[in-house]
């Protein structure tokens, strides 16, 4: 792609200004224009993305009085029960929520693509939860989960099931947050999978509309393998989002009960603002950044492979 355009541009440059001196001047001018076009976005990207990363990296080697302590913060973190528990909670949360969301999003996408009437309407309606600010969704679900007068327990009672403690129980709080985060995410991720399903060739689609066992076999052996890339994209992007989940924890559980929902993003917030230990929070942020950037980098790598492959 870039070799292609450079040939074109040289030709364009030659048409504009024949002769090597003029040509050099033209190239100089192009560089100057490029800098003008790029600088507003670049200044902001440096201020709000790159500089803070460098800063947090340096801060992680200091103590609260800004003295150099080397890897001390990292050593403290790796020996702290609170941090190790937060890692355990975050991993468990992701191992549960990502497969749940993707299977549900795929199911929703298949229903929308395979024969439901008015596919656009269903897609639009199920996209609504993601446009609601997550802080607001958390508040709504907080009311729904109330053990004594919440609607979810009311439904359980109505169908003859026992009431649950939801957010107030150390055993159920994480599940409650998974339900709320999935309500937000499933419709959004299904959007990407619907786009992917539409890419599967037409003759495969026709076989897929046949009913019964043939449908499931076609789905499993033909269509899902063709969906590998959009599925991988959604898995990686969803994981990156869920590794950083913050608002529901801060608003509803504050990490509890007994640290059962202490996701790492909230743990960082708590170290920074409740315990006022900014360097420790910085070290924790560096570790989180490494994990998330590895995952998102993998996603970008896969997207690029797709492009050069086609």
């Amino acid at each position: 792609m870039s070799a292609d355009s450079s040939i074109n541009l040289t030709r364009g440059g030659a048409l504009l200004s024949p002769g090597s001196v003029e040509d050099k001047k033209g190239r100089h001018q192009a560089t100057l224009s490029a800098i003008l076009f790029l600088s507003p976005a670049f200044v902001l990207l440096i201020l709000f993305r790159l500089a803070p990363v460098i800063q947090v990296f340096f801060d992680s080697f200091l103590n609260s009085s800004s003295e150099w302590v080397g890897l001390e913060n990292y050593r403290f973190l790796l020996e702290s029960d609170s941090f190790l528990n937060s890692i355990r909670v975050t991993l468990l949360f992701n191992v549960l929520i990502n497969p749940i969301q993707i299977v549900m999003a795929l199911g929703m996408a298949l229903l929308i693509v395979d024969g439901a009437k008015k596919p656009g309407m269903w897609q639009t309606l199920n996209l609504l939860p993601v446009v609601v600010p997550l802080a607001i969704s958390s508040l709504i679900w907080g009311v729904a989960f109330r053990p004594d007068d919440g609607i979810i327990n009311a439904i359980l009672i109505a169908v003859g099931l026992p009431e649950q403690r939801w957010l107030t129980s150390a055993d159920q709080a994480m599940m409650s947050i998974i339900i709320l985060a999935s309500w937000v995410g499933v419709g959004y991720w299904s959007l990407f999978l619907v786009a992917g399903l539409h890419q599967v060739p037409k003759d495969v689609m026709e076989a897929a509309t046949l009913d019964g066992a043939r449908y499931w076999r076609t789905l499993w052996y033909v269509r899902l393998p063709l969906m590998r890339r959009p599925l991988a994209f959604v898995l990686v992007a969803d994981t990156a989002v869920n590794l950083l989940l913050f608002a529901p924890v801060q608003i509803l559980t504050r990490g509890g009960p007994v640290d059962s929902t202490n996701l790492v993003m909230f743990d960082i917030y708590r170290n920074a603002f409740v315990f006022a230990d900014l360097p420790l929070a910085a070290a924790e942020t560096v570790l989180l950044l490494i994990v998330v950037m590895a995952i998102v980098g993998l996603q970008f790598f896969m997207l690029n492979q797709r492009r050069s492959g086609s």
Partner: peptide, 9 residues
């Protein structure tokens, strides 16, 4: 770079 992660510093 996830912005949430660098927001605090």
């Amino acid at each position: 770079i996830p912005f949430e992660a660098i927001g605090i510093p």
